[in-house]
Amino acid sequence: MIRPVHTIGAVTALCAAILSANWYFSDHDYPEARSYIVSEDPEGDVDAALARAAENDKRVLLVMGANWCHDSRALAGWLGTQRFSELIEDRYELVYVNVGKPQEGDGHNIDIARRFGVADLPGTPNVLVLTHKGELVNADTVTTWRNAASRSENEIFDELAKLAG
């Protein structure tokens, strides 16, 4: 007869081995944010970021994505690293906005994208770089970030550095 205490111990040891090996959670080479940071008042946060950008001579980095999306979590993970944090602190005001699943007709906060001239969000994430006056800098690349998880760290960094002006 297998004793319950031994079974629990064996299961616990197996789970610990899996977690320490980290193979289950990281089958990729990007730092994935565990929770995509979203705002409860996205319109207000965008306005506040624009005001701070005007005060500090920065641009706004408006990331429109979702927790369900691995590309959104990958981008948020990169943006949370020290290398990207330094760029963002020096050149941007960062705002995350939850857009749900716009490609399935369940989009949220799409009016924010439209406010800056982006009519449609075909997927996630979307990256809008704005001047402090609310002018869209990267109209040609807003919706091209849907492959953020497969982009290299340098590719993402270089593009954001270029867009920082």
Rank of each mutant, 00 (worst) to 15 (best):
L50M: 09
D71F: 10
A49K: 01
R59W: 09
W78P: 03
L79M: 15
W68K: 06
E43Q: 15
R59Q: 14
A76Q: 07
D45F: 10
A74V: 12
H70I: 12
K58G: 03
R52E: 14
G44N: 13
S72P: 05
L50R: 07
A76I: 09
K58Y: 01
A51Y: 11
V63F: 03
D45T: 09
G77D: 02
A76V: 06
W78T: 00
E43F: 07
V63A: 01
A76W: 02
P42S: 15
D71K: 06
W68F: 06
L75K: 02
E55K: 14
D71M: 10
E55H: 08
C69L: 00
A48F: 11
W68C: 01
A76E: 09
D57G: 08
K58M: 04
L62S: 05
N56K: 14
D47W: 11
W68D: 11
N67S: 12
N67H: 12
L61C: 08
V63D: 01
A66N: 11
A76K: 02
N67C: 08
R73N: 06
D45P: 06
R73C: 02
A53C: 08
E55S: 13
W78Y: 15
E55D: 14
A76C: 07
E43G: 09
C69N: 07
G77L: 00
C69M: 02
A74L: 10
N67P: 02
M64G: 06
H70C: 03
D71W: 13
G65C: 06
D71N: 14
W78I: 00
D57F: 03
R73K: 09
D47P: 07
W78C: 01
A54V: 09
W68H: 08
N56S: 14
A54Y: 03
D57E: 15
A66C: 04
G65A: 06
V63T: 06
V46M: 13
R52I: 08
A51K: 13
G65I: 08
W78D: 06
W68L: 00
N56I: 08
P42N: 14
L50E: 00
C69G: 05
M64C: 04
W68Y: 04
A49P: 01
G77C: 04
A74C: 10
G44L: 13
L75I: 09
A49D: 10
L62A: 07
D71Y: 11
